[in-house]
Design a protein around this nucleic acid. Structure first.
Lengths: 345, 345
DNA sequence: ATTAGCACTCAACGCGAGTGAGTGCTAATG
DNA sequence: CATTAGCACTCACTCGCGTTGAGTGCTAAT
């Protein structure tokens, strides 16, 4: 059981998995001997396959079909057998094409990155934009709109802009607003938005007495402006690519997957765990999620600029996924997006 | 052929269409007599059905199946037979539920409207947000970011906020910016964004000499800020609802539809024609589009606030759609969104 | 250890009979 | 003369059954 695989078994397992990734059909012993130049007869291969099945790397749908890899098989393949090739020059240049992102706002860039991931991998692309709450505060500005309404603008260290309309109740003069702005821009930079909120709450609660009027108003305004959570932005691209996969031919599995891909919330949960990791992460089948996306694997990578804004992107596809191609794509794209973020700020 | 339908034929046609909408299966003569209290025998109904088929309202998939409505049948049904009931109180209150939209920004509201449309109709909901270019300019503001970068903020009469980062090349002082802002906010309000652009181009070209330095810089800045088209925002909700429809059981039709629903561009084209119309519009089958969404019908309605911002929303579903339910839903939702827009500004 | 040979398994395919919902036509009916 | 009962006919759908063939596991020979 726990015995390590000898080289021949490894080669055969690799051949089976790669054939299956390619054809989506159970692989038989004869197919292996003809498609690969092992100097072995089908019978020998059969013996090896039987062993691999005993060890849990392969399974047979029924007696007279070939073998298909199990999740454990894929996991072993990805960890031990797969050598990750460098991304082909063709793809490299296709991804790193400046014209694609030229002159687009953050949202459009994120969407375009999703399209890119989906287009090149031919699976479904996911991008979770940097969460605003974890970005670093740089600047706040107030713009007076009509009838005592104020537009509040936050700018993060990474150049993200977030705005919100509030109705403070008091009609501030331009001078007052300027003082408030100056005060806040003096005190708050360098903290994450979450920290800023905590600080505001702290100041308002504990040290009320110590503050002068402008200071108090400043904190009250910014408190109001930061109320309410800013939802994560998730971008999905190429969901119809899922329908192309023979693995999801059944109506049922299709529905389950499309429903999940529609739910931003569920996607956030999927991507969230990879947020803090570094480098490419691979979730195969049940590793990815508790049956919400049965039969799917997920390849993710966090991206970040030099200034701390952090997001996650990835590709989701069937467990029978072309890992050797997708992994470098996700890796390279994440680093590209990191560079894009730096450019923006 | 052109002969008008007598009342009995109308009743039978209506019954057939409604049964088919309900069951998604060909309707036979016997089914009609048992499910509806016509005082007629199946044989008589058969005669009428044969006539209706001759006139092109019905079709038979094969000799020994019942009849299904043709597109022409649906069209006649919607135009002449369908009496639009008022929306049930249950739905009314479900749609007009303030807590649903409380404290959400425009984008989230639009998405939520899509969810609402999809949830209540159980088809797919579409919302095209007011095009920024056709909204009326109210206010422009500049915020200085680091390193000579400026954040430009447009506010429209309807309260929409749009921002963009530009790099003017010159480092303006706070005073200069204030003058520029004042000048622009004095000259531009009341025009649509498109008109503003034309005006800027005109001023820069024709009357260059007449302008003083500040004025010239003002126009140059705002020209830069308005460069590049702002893409339409389209929100889609409940695409998986399409998969639930037996009409799209075949892989092929499913793929075609999902692909179309993924393409913002194609959706914009679909919704665009309804933009300028007033009231609910109904596109049945091939009326909706040249085969891009074969087998689909589209119910749309434009919405607008009192201040001219105009968008379109709608529901897309199979031709075999519950028109009597969807039409009032779309109608009522459009008016609700109109009211929401007024509330925002 | 490897392989040839062979019996066995079982999904997939094709075929034909049976079933039943539905039709169109004709003749009878009020 | 519109309506209806009766009847032969059509045809998708289902089920059972034999055939096919890819693939396996086991055993004996190399």
């Amino acid at each position: 059981m726990g015995a390590p695989l000898n080289e021949r078994s490894q080669n055969i397992l690799e051949a089976i998995i790669e054939d299956y990734i390619h054809t989506a059909e159970p692989v038989g012993s004869r197919a292996i001997t003809t498609r690969h130049a092992f100097h072995l007869s089908p019978a020998t291969v059969r013996n090896v396959m039987a062993d691999l099945e005993d060890m849990g790397f392969l399974a047979s749908p029924h007696t007279s079909a070939g073998r298909i890899p199990t999740e454990k098989g894929y996991q072993y393949y990805v960890e031990s057998l797969l050598q990750i090739r460098d991304l082909s020059e063709e793809f490299r240049s296709c991804i790193d094409d400046d014209t694609r992102f030229a002159g687009k706002c953050m949202e459009d860039v994120m969407q375009e990155v999703g399209n890119l991931l989906s287009g090149i991998s031919s699976y479904t692309g996911l991008v979770m934009a940097p969460r605003f709450n974890s970005t670093i505060f740089r600047q706040i500005e107030f713009v007076r709109l009509s009838q005592g309404r104020l537009l509040v603008i936050f700018v993060s260290e990474s150049g993200l802009v977030q705005n919100k309309v509030i109705e403070p109740g008091i009609d501030f003069s331009a001078r007052e607003l300027e003082s408030i702005t100056n005060y806040l821009n003096h005190r708050l930079p360098g903290m994450t938005i979450t920290q800023v909120r905590e600080r505001i709450a702290f100041e308002l609660r504990e040290e009320k007495t110590r503050l002068n009027k402008i200071q108090k108003q400043a904190f009250e305004l910014s408190d109001k402006a930061l109320q309410g959570d800013i939802a994560e932005q998730v971008y999905v691209a190429g969901t119809s690519r899922m329908l192309e996969q023979p693995d999801f031919a059944s109506h049922d599995s299709m529905m389950r997957i499309m429903r999940t891909l529609e739910s931003k919330q569920q996607l956030i949960e999927l991507l969230d765990s990879s947020q803090s990791a570094s480098g490419v992460q691979i979730f195969i089948g049940s590793q990815a999620s508790d049956s919400k996306i049965e039969g799917c694997s997920l390849i993710t990578a966090p991206f970040s600029g030099q200034n701390g804004a952090v997001g996650t992107l990835g590709v989701i596809g069937p467990v029978r996924m072309n890992y050797s191609q997708v992994i470098p794509i996700v890796d390279f794209t994440a680093s590209l997006v990191g560079r894009l973020l730096d450019r923006e700020s």
